[in-house]
Amino acid sequence: MIVEKDETIPVRTSEDVVRVRREVRERAVALGFGLVDQTKLVTAASEIARNTLDYGGGGELRIECLRDGNRRGLRLSFSDRGPGIPDIERAMTDGYTTGGGLGLGLSGAKRLSSDFAIRSSPGQGTVVILARWK
């Protein structure tokens, strides 16, 4: 697997979340993703970016364009230095929320991604990595 492009953008305000959606969309279009794949990726990015902002107190997004043989993909890594998630398994359940949302952010984003990983420890922050392949 080769990383062809690697950028980092901040996720500190709700305008940044809009920018995350725009940047992810542009990358996905450039990689030749179809409309449905683009939309799934942008929506997943939007969910996690909002989590990074609302629960993690802001952080950053690393966007990588990947190539693996004939496959092209996009990997998004969101990281924050917030309070972290004490019980990841519970946070990944549909409908579980601590912030008054619908509780679909993490679980929904996972369903919209080809690969999904989450690392978090209390007090250390959270890293969510998701990727989608064409």
Binding site: L35, V36, Q38, T39, K40, T43, E47, D94, L102, L104, S107, G108, A109, R111, L112
Partner: peptide
Amino acid sequence: PAVAITLVELGL
């Protein structure tokens, strides 16, 4: 359509 498909996949 793409938005609808995504929304259903998201669980809404």
